[in-house]
Design a protein around this nucleic acid. Structure first.
Lengths: 203, 203
DNA sequence: AGCTGAACTTTACATCGTAAAGATTATACA
DNA sequence: TGTATAATCTTTACGATGTAAAGTTCAGCT
């Protein structure tokens, strides 16, 4: 807090924050250990006091991204708790919006952890939390009769995959322009969700 | 052909091939320009005679991966041309199998090109070709009554997203073990496709 | 006050992408 | 056929990167 040079006090979190800032400004390409250290105002080897290697820092940044995503989804979930059709649509839409607003962070979250089978237990934990929330939503929708009965975890994977695949193809520029001109992203999402839902979801 | 040191003869393709080999053996982390050059038996700067920079080589490798995927899908498409339900299932399954067999190549294909808006026209071309094939399959399935009528390109995005998202979440280790133990991947695929299909798809 | 260990810096090194200049070969044109 | 020119490849060089090792500073305990 007071001292300047040594014992930053909370360098670990400062590095994660610095990493997210660089990710926003410079994208994945600019995310080097040294640049993160510089952004946090410490020497280039300082991160090694808190992270085993670059992968570990990346994992921590991904975990932070996951937490932010979780928070956003949670808010949407509470706001639409007693309107299951809207819940399904809006939580999916929030997922997509997050991916659009922080594309580099989002891509990092889904392209890092398994590099080596190092556990990164925080990452696994928040990932599981995310899935559990999704299963909850599915169960609510099942009880409301807008998703078919059956194993909620299996349906959750199916729904998640559909939404995740859509935004991924989008971010990678795989969805042809001709399609995007005709149907805005929100329409594509609604359409895909309607493939899954038993009753029609509308705006 | 004959001379050894200079004028390799077909270095461009040799580099692409070398890149795919390294991708299989060492994964994305081992894919450096220098390692690719060494694998092809040339000096580390030789690739610059054929590729503008590393990104361009990566794009070429991705394009080659896309071609291989396209070939596999084409074979499956021809084998199941007059059995639409099997066509839909098997071409999706082939997509997933490819991703499982060459995960690093697959991930590269869907995580590179847009780095800068450099055109990489070959990549765009083969990507469009892939989408067109998918639209064809969708239309066949619509005519057979196993996919609902409507704009085929929109449905194609939906189907592709579903399959792509499923295997992506899988490769990134996001699908909980508990789910995988209960339902093998093929079952999860069938389940997801059945969410979309109007008539039941079976084995 | 002095010891100990954690947090941070400095130095060093191998590897990376890439630029520049030199060497070698193929090709086009006289 | 001989030679200029361009294409292909090598060599050398440089800055940036990840990381190891050793040195420095500081907090807290005895």
């Amino acid at each position: 807090m007071s001292s300047d040079n040594y014992h930053h006090g909370n360098l670990k979190n400062a590095l994660i924050k610095a990493g997210m800032e660089i990710l926003e400004k410079k994208g994945t390409g600019g995310l080097s250990l040294r640049s993160v250290a510089k952004q946090a105002g410490v020497s280039h080897a300082a991160p090694y006091a808190h992270f085993a290697d670059k992968q570990a820092l990346i994992a921590a940044i991904s975990t932070e991204g996951f937490k932010r995503l979780l928070d956003k989804l949670e808010i949407v979930r509470k706001m639409n708790a007693n309107d299951p059709p809207a819940l399904l649509v809006e939580i999916s839409w929030a997922y997509i919006r997050f991916a659009q607003q922080e594309p580099d962070c989002f891509k990092l979250m889904f392209s890092s952890a398994l590099e080596k089978e190092k556990e990164y237990s925080d990452f696994v934990k928040v990932s599981q939390q995310n899935f559990r929330q999704l299963v909850d939503v599915v169960e609510v929708c099942q009880q409301a009769g807008i998703l078919e009965a059956g194993p909620a975890d299996q349906i959750a994977v199916s729904v998640w995959g559909t939404v995740h695949g859509l935004i991924m193809l989008m971010l990678e520029g795989q969805v042809p322009h001709s399609v995007l001109e005709k149907y805005p992203l929100r329409k594509l999402l609604l359409f895909s969700l309607n493939q899954i839902a038993v009753n029609e979801l509308t705006e």
